[in-house]
Amino acid sequence: MTTNERPKIGLLVVDLDDTLWTWFDAWYESFSSMMMELQKATGLSREELLPAIKSMHEQKGTAEYSWLLDELPILEPFRAGRTAREVFDSVLHAQNSARKYNTVLYPGVMSTLRYLKANNVTVVAYTESLSFWTEWRMRTTGLDGLIDVLYSSPDHDFPEGETKETVRTLPNEEYGLKRTIHRGVARGIAKPNPQILKEIVAAHAVAGRSVI
């Protein structure tokens, strides 16, 4: 397609993880960094930690559970009633640094989305990933506003006694999306889900133009 041609599509529906950006690489590198620092901080072995973490991930239904270090029973002797931020700051720093460094767009994604935006193509993203980390990746990769509407799974519940306000460590303007509209889907819905896709097309299709 040359830059002088206008696309004939009106709506593009895309996945995000390992489609527009590197989800697995970022998760693997951040998890590996966390594990390495956690072993140093606790003296626990990988063989002791992995089954406990796997069990927690299965219980919460996600490998991106934000309060993993706060709730792992095997870490309770080290926490002793304190939060993970108080006890495992170096561990969380290593995890977050690796996550940010490795969360990048695939080549051509940014230029393609800018081209579609300039030609009035509506771009809708649909992901199974949780709301908080999806918004973080959107901000980190610069896609807030280039994607018109985001559909994602809701976040996991906050730990007892915590709220969105109490767990935030940055100013409120550092959270959420400023230009992309964010809509949730019901908890537990897995892709591919024909009904969700039908709803997206019904809500966002452009008359006289095709859907991809």
Rank of each mutant, 00 (worst) to 15 (best):
E5G: 02
R6Y: 02
I9A: 05
D15G: 10
D15V: 09
D18A: 07
T22E: 12
D25Y: 03
W27L: 15
S30L: 09
L38S: 05
A41N: 02
A41L: 07
L44N: 03
S45W: 00
P51I: 03
A52R: 08
K54M: 13
E58K: 13
G61K: 07
S66P: 10
L69R: 03
E71G: 05
I74G: 04
E76A: 12
E76G: 01
R85E: 13
E86V: 01
V91N: 07
H93N: 12
H93C: 13
A98Q: 10
K100N: 10
T103N: 13
P107L: 07
M110F: 07
S111I: 08
S111Y: 00
Y115E: 12
V121I: 15
V121C: 10
V123P: 12
Y126A: 05
E128I: 02
E128M: 04
S129K: 11
S129E: 07
F132W: 14
T134H: 02
E135Q: 13
R137E: 01
R139D: 04
L146P: 09
D148V: 01
D148H: 11
P154W: 11
D155R: 04
F158E: 05
E165I: 04
E165Q: 12
E165Y: 00
T166W: 06
T169Q: 15
L170T: 00
N172G: 04
R179A: 10
I181Y: 01
H182I: 01
R183A: 03
R183N: 10
G184A: 06
G184Q: 14
K198L: 12
V201G: 03
A207V: 08
V211R: 13
I212T: 12
